[in-house]
Write a protein that binds this DNA or RNA. Sequence first.
DNA 1: GCGCGGCCATGATGCAGATCAAGAATCGGC
DNA 2: GCCGATTCTTGATCTGCATCATGGCCGCGC
Lengths: 252, 252
Amino acid sequence: MSMRLQDVSETAPLRSCTHEYKVNCETCRLSRICLPLAINHKDLEQLENIIQRSKPLQKNELLYHEGSPFQSIYAVRSGAVKGYRTTSDGREQVTGFYFPGEILGMDGISNNSHASSARALETSAICAIPFDSLERLSASMPSLQRHLFQLMSREITEDQLLITLLSKNSADERVATLLLSIASRNARRNLSASQFRLPMSRVDIGNYLGLTVETISRVFSRMQKTGVLRVDNKEIEILDQEALQLAANIAN
Amino acid sequence: MSMRLQDVSETAPLRSCTHEYKVNCETCRLSRICLPLAINHKDLEQLENIIQRSKPLQKNELLYHEGSPFQSIYAVRSGAVKGYRTTSDGREQVTGFYFPGEILGMDGISNNSHASSARALETSAICAIPFDSLERLSASMPSLQRHLFQLMSREITEDQLLITLLSKNSADERVATLLLSIASRNARRNLSASQFRLPMSRVDIGNYLGLTVETISRVFSRMQKTGVLRVDNKEIEILDQEALQLAANIAN
DNA sequence: GCGCGGCCATGATGCAGATCAAGAATCGGC
DNA sequence: GCCGATTCTTGATCTGCATCATGGCCGCGC
């Protein structure tokens, strides 16, 4: 609610930046886990041509806002982004965290308007991929079309996992599951799966997991006391992977 | 858990039925809200050719099962279906209810294997649409491709609404929201939005909404007592639409 | 038409996590 | 490198829903 006070630095949409940053998928070390993974070398250039890159988003800047016209889906190149929707009484519900190599914004397709908002959790570089171009391209590139279907399908199954987590699991289980998810996504990017810095606040974690800040704090403290984690503010070290897995696997 | 006892009548997959039932999209009164809505008259025949119809599923029969190979998405023609996934400790989480004209099974695309199961809540006629054919077709029919993207996107936004409901709303709010959702989906099919029969049990409702059977019963009783609903077993009448909307709209 | 099994309703009690409150640590701006 | 704002931690208390328990109901098979 008082979150609203942060809305000071909302930027114009990405595409209004005329200056294109010199990056391409060819040399991007995320290409093996991002959109290009579906595309062979010679087709990559066509994708390359439609992707727009712009100056990085600063922490707390908006990538897109609920209700704004849908034009692009986005790939995170660096940093981290949270997706959320605002309820009618003004509270927000965090629906996902997005790390480098991950795609967001696909919920805007059905209405031609974004159904959620996205905000940078830290300074983040983002690739915008205009969806109408992508659609045209994918009609002639079956592997791209398939990959897009798969991406959306994965988003659906992940949302269903979250639904299950929220309706069946205890606070400890929810937190353990989130930490393991972040750990495995780090591993995918060849980062440490056992030691990392959380880009999001306790409030965001609690919001995402359907818990209060206090509960998140308590779970972290408890897990620190039992030797499962070492917690130093946002710095997390998983000391006992097995125990954490056990805590998470009770019900999923 | 004791749900398992119902698993008596599982059928072979739809496509093993050689006998095709004489139905087509052209004459189906759901065509305006189902897949064909995206397709013009002359292209419809091609879609028609790939759709498989088979003998109706009986109550409690499985349409597809978690982990089974993904081949088709499904459209409900009559009856009602519930989607659910089984947690590692054997409990089930209902992830959605599907009524005539609605599409399910898209969560299977990402892995080529179904991420959830689907079971008929009552005798139900189902159209199976082989996905590889649909994919090929959609590469040459932009409006179909777009419609598929939109369908999946809608599923994502609906899952996000459920996530919000589960993590922010009280028992009353959840139940009210579900009833209004069913009412409006009835209206889309030109059925009464104020009087209908619930195809699912209280257990399924509770499971879907992250509540226990007892709580569902109590909420129904309470709403009956306050004159918002008339409840007669599965038969529901919405007496005070405004009040119900108010109860639901507290937070979404 | 009777009996049995699954489904539903309702009351009594317990508990996980929310809420309220207050202090400590950290961050960001100058 | 200091100060105010924000974020985080920890404790005390409260509460909505789960859990446990019981009885009624409804539908179905014989």
